[in-house]
């Protein structure tokens, strides 16, 4: 047991974590990172909250701090602006990499290994469910089910005036648009789940 909590205990590291990431779609280039910090300098989220530090997340992942990385709320703060991706001199493709790490976190949570500390994946799931059901996003249902799942009834009520504003402008519909070949959409989901 280490006395200083800031010291990394090497016996708890998982050196295979980086290989797990690099076999995910989007995570291929993680090992190229040489820690220059250009990503941090270009990150709009870091300017608001220094806790979201892409360089640090990558370093932790390379070291094998699997549990810390996957259960960190910061991996869900990426806004997907591609500013770091564009600037990175090593072509680490950080935006895609963050997506790959997020996918691993979802898998590990499903397996009961970690607990995700963000509502982002639940909101995303509401959207993805809509695609699975209709082939297109049915905004009205997506927003209602996402907010309900993450903020409860009280949270949903706080969006009522927003919802009416959208309805008045005829920006939300009452019926979903459906793809004709829904079987093919379902097939995409099934094929990727089998993998």
């Amino acid at each position: 047991m280490l006395e200083n909590p800031d010291v990394i205990d090497a016996s708890n590291l998982d050196p295979t974590f980086k290989y797990d990431i690099s076999t995910q779609l989007g995570g291929e280039n993680i090992k190229r990172c040489f820690q220059c910090g250009t990503c941090v300098a270009s990150c709009p989220i870091w300017t608001i909250d220094e806790g979201f530090n892409p360089r640090k997340i990558i370093r932790m992942a390379l070291l094998g701090m699997k549990e810390e990385v996957l259960s960190s709320e910061f991996i869900w703060f990426c806004s997907r602006c591609y500013a770091c991706y564009e600037q990175c001199p090593q072509d680490v493709r950080i935006t895609e990499l963050m997506g790959a790490i997020a996918s691993i976190a979802e898998r590990e949570e499903k397996d009961g290994n970690i607990k995700i500390r963000s509502t982002k994946p639940i909101l995303d799931k509401a959207f993805v469910n809509s695609i699975r059901k209709y082939g297109r996003n049915f905004e009205t249902e997506t927003i209602i089910s996402g907010v309900l799942a993450t903020k409860g009834i009280k949270g949903l009520l706080s969006y009522v005036s927003d919802g009416f504003a959208m309805l008045r402008k005829r920006k939300l519909g009452f019926r979903p648009e459906k793809v004709k070949e829904l079987g093919q959409i379902g097939g995409i989901f099934e094929a990727l789940e089998e993998k």
Partner: peptide, 19 residues
């Protein structure tokens, strides 16, 4: 004809690319 959602910012990579 019969276009489907691209996956937007919400779906994970393999799903987005396939959709």
């Amino acid at each position: 004809d019969d276009w489907n959602c691209c996956g937007a910012l919400e779906a994970s990579n393999p799903l987005t690319l396939s959709l």
